[in-house]
């Protein structure tokens, strides 16, 4: 070759590697981000219609609607990432209403400077989780905030589901004598997140328990079990979910700590930094309250699903004092469970 042709000095601008404020401006950058990242990953007829919203028919039954905002640091962690959490969390909230998840919306707040490759990974993870859940992301939005005003990515997902039965699932349906079932061991998600933060200098094989719960709920409903209440364990851990149910239902709960499984790495981390595993976050565990007479049937149905293969009975509902959760400790003595105060901090004392 003899020399540069005139046009090689003036190449077309390469697509940006990082999020710019203009990606949220509604103009051509916004459109190119949509075409490049979101459209190929989430492709489905309702989304591809490019309307202001999605218009669809609901199957017969009652509809359930839920919404949640997702933030986490680091954005990617062992066994999961923010994208997967944003799908599983909202689909799980629908499942806890006894609703089969149908459609989701996704709204992104991106921080200026975020690597687009990171966003692409999160979006691919969302698309994978959505396929797994059998749902479609049918509408969405993107905004960009200045560098320093966000934590990389915030995602809000809302979900619509259909309730195909007549059970009034909720805390109000729990009755004294009912059995309290737990779908598996606790604390994995929070422990995996804490362990992945550099500041603690920990090396573990801990992975989040982040998972879709609808298959387990579907199994309970398919077995025609009169499920009273479902509650997924999230930020405040098992203890918080129990206290909330007791308060919302106006009943008392008696729970046996010795039935609650905590894996060794979760225990090790909790001992090391002084946390109570009952207050550590989960993303793939739930509580199920059923009449005592059907508790064994419910356990059998749950154990047939991979996500709840280690389900156990941890206690029962009692009439009073309303709002109180008592826990039988490892040595068989009793204590009362409370809501935690503020964030959990590593302690030395």
């Amino acid at each position: 070759m003899s020399g540069p042709t005139p046009f090689e000095d003036c190449p077309a601008p390469a697509p940006p590697q990082r999020i710019l404020l203009g990606h949220g401006g509604g103009g051509s950058l916004t459109r190119s981000l949509y075409e490049r990242v979101f459209a190929p990953a989430f492709a489905n007829p309702l989304l591809d219609a490019r309307h202001d919203g999605a218009v669809f028919d609901l199957p017969a039954g009652r509809a359930a609607l839920t919404t949640d905002a997702y933030v986490v640091r680091p954005l990617e962690f062992p066994g999961g990432d923010l994208g997967r959490m944003a799908i599983c969390g909202t689909a799980n909230d629908l499942a806890m209403c006894g609703a089969r998840p149908l459609h989701l919306s996704a709204s992104f707040v991106l921080e200026e400077g975020l690597e687009i490759a990171v966003l692409e990974r999160l979006v691919a993870s969302m698309a994978g989780a959505a396929r797994e859940a059998g749902v479609e992301i049918v509408t969405g939005d993107t905004k960009v905030v200045e560098r320093g005003s966000g934590d990389g990515v915030f995602i809000t997902t809302s979900g619509v589901g259909v309730v195909e039965h007549t059970l009034p699932i909720g805390p109000g349906a729990a009755r004294p004598g009912d059995a309290v079932l737990l779908s598996g061991d606790v604390g994995r998600h929070g422990a995996a997140i804490m362990a992945s933060r550099e500041a603690l200098g920990l090396d573990t094989d801990l992975r989040t328990d982040c998972a879709l719960l609808w298959p387990a709920v579907d199994a309970l409903l398919a077995a025609d079990l009169p499920v009273a209440c479902l509650r997924d364990l999230t930020r405040g851990g098992l203890a918080t979910a129990l206290v909330e149910i007791a308060r919302d239902a106006g009943v008392a709960l008696a729970v046996d700590e010795r039935q609650i499984a905590v894996s060794n790495p979760v225990r090790g981390l909790c001992e090391l930094i002084g946390l109570d595993p009952l207050y550590v976050a989960n993303e793939g565990r739930f509580l199920c309250i059923v009449p005592e007479a059907r508790a064994e049937d419910a356990l059998r149905a749950l154990r047939a699903c991979p996500v709840s293969a280690n389900a156990v009975r941890i206690g029962h509902v009692t009439a009073s004092p309303a709002g109180r959760v008592t826990l039988k400790s490892a040595i068989g003595s009793e204590r009362v469970l409370h809501l935690q105060t503020g964030e959990q901090l590593p302690r030395i004392c």
């Binding site: 308060r247 919302d248 109180r324 409370h338």
Partner: peptide
């Protein structure tokens, strides 16, 4: 305190 019956709104 907060764990007492006074806080439960539901019957």
């Amino acid at each position: 305190g907060p764990s007492d019956a006074t806080e439960s709104a539901r019957p």
